[in-house]
Design a protein around this nucleic acid. Structure first.
Lengths: 223, 223
DNA sequence: TGTCACTTGTCAGCGACTGTCATAAATTAC
DNA sequence: GTAATTTATGACAGTCGCTGACAAGTGACA
């Protein structure tokens, strides 16, 4: 038997089936107009079971982008500690985007479908923001840990908040067609990162204790 | 026979009564544990009427900070057009904060009560973020109008997103006790604005001032 | 094969929220 | 001042998101 038992594979399959069915129904008749009962019926599952897979109706639409945020966290944790905060965040983000662009086309398509839906549905967009903000907190904690400062360090909050703004700008207002053009999403990410680099003073994201070190290291790794 | 008729005054009174009752109940027994029926009963009004004043249970807690955001919009619109975007945003924000600090103590207390509640209630915090993001869009449109660029201008998005991050950092993690100390909130705003000033290159928020900076810095920060 | 753990369906119920209609109160017209 | 009109409210019924509890089915493992 594979590393996953029949039970786990079955669970994974119904989970994906629920996501696909939900995404289709949402696209067809709109998010609000679709009931959980309909989604459950489409997968031939009881409505109660739906809520055993997703805590809320919102979650079924947001789960994919949410997974992406988990990857981001993991990538950030893997960055070398010497890297300045903003640089590390940028590289982690690049890893997520390229990972997405190189993934199984079916997965990529699902992801883009979800993102387009979220963009065009106010309620989902709101929920997406909520999760994003929750994630910002976790990114802040990680950066604070790396830099050896407290969770309430003002500069750390500022750095992460600024980065999240950049990340948002990269993803927003991307129509699916644009994104499907090869590398468009990472291209956009680079554009916004370059914009940020151009607006910010070198070494801005570290307390000015070691300007020359930052000068030397951040200069080459950017992009 | 003032400028408002009896009807309007009555409406305004019940609206405030609903907010006060809700804030009290939320503080007492928690947001989730409080039902709309309880709030309505406390003001001696039918539950149906509650929803004629507030679209959702969330709204009754968020309405005050939301009003503040409207003021922010108005203040921004009143700034002279020559002001660079970030400067104008900063001054508008200062006007909002000082306006808040100089208001009727009862109003200020209500506002702070609402903010504290939002800070400590995940569901409300999430909702607050949602509204904030909605407002960011409006700020972006206003800045784009001032600068004579399109709604999708990348720099404009970046400037506003960055500013909103700064504004958030100013308000978050402020305990009520801290804020009640005179001017504490504007003090914090100034601190974060100063932090931003120190991190950003002069003229970063206007396209015309940027070419030589990009040229000069591209060696170390880009490509 | 039988035991055990886990997943699922069914049902009953709470609470947020909405449409509808009748009533009461305030505003305006005469 | 009274009548007509507009507007706020209450009462009621209903939908939908979501949860707890219990029973039945299904894979895991000895």
């Amino acid at each position: 038997m594979g590393q996953y038992g029949l039970r786990e594979r079955k669970k994974h399959r119904t989970r994906l089936a629920l996501i696909d069915a939900a995404l289709d129904l949402f696209a067809e008749q709109g998010y609000e107009a679709t009931t959980v009962d309909q989604i459950a019926a489409a997968v031939d599952v009881s409505p109660r079971t739906f809520f055993r897979y997703f805590a809320t109706k919102e979650d079924v639409a947001l789960s994919l982008p949410l997974d992406g945020q988990e990857v981001m966290l993991a990538e950030l944790a893997a960055r070398p500690p010497e890297e300045p905060p903003f640089t590390a965040l940028g590289h982690a983000m690049r890893a997520v985007v390229t990972g997405l662009e190189e993934a199984d086309p079916a997965d990529t398509a699902r992801f883009l479908k979800a993102r387009e839906l979220i963009e065009n549905t106010p309620a989902l967009f709101a929920g997406s923001m909520r999760r994003l903000m929750g994630n910002e907190q976790r990114l802040t904690e990680e950066i604070a840990r790396r830099e050896g400062v407290g969770d309430d360090d003002l500069l750390t909050h500022f750095v992460v908040a600024l980065f999240v703004s950049v990340a948002r700008a990269s993803f927003e207002h991307c129509q699916v067609d644009d994104i499907l053009a090869a590398g468009s999403i990472s291209g956009r990410l680079e554009a916004v990162l370059a914009l940020a680099e151009g607006a910010l003073r070198p070494g801005w994201d570290r307390p000015s204790a070691r300007p020359q070190f930052i000068e030397g290291s951040s200069g080459q790794v950017a992009t």
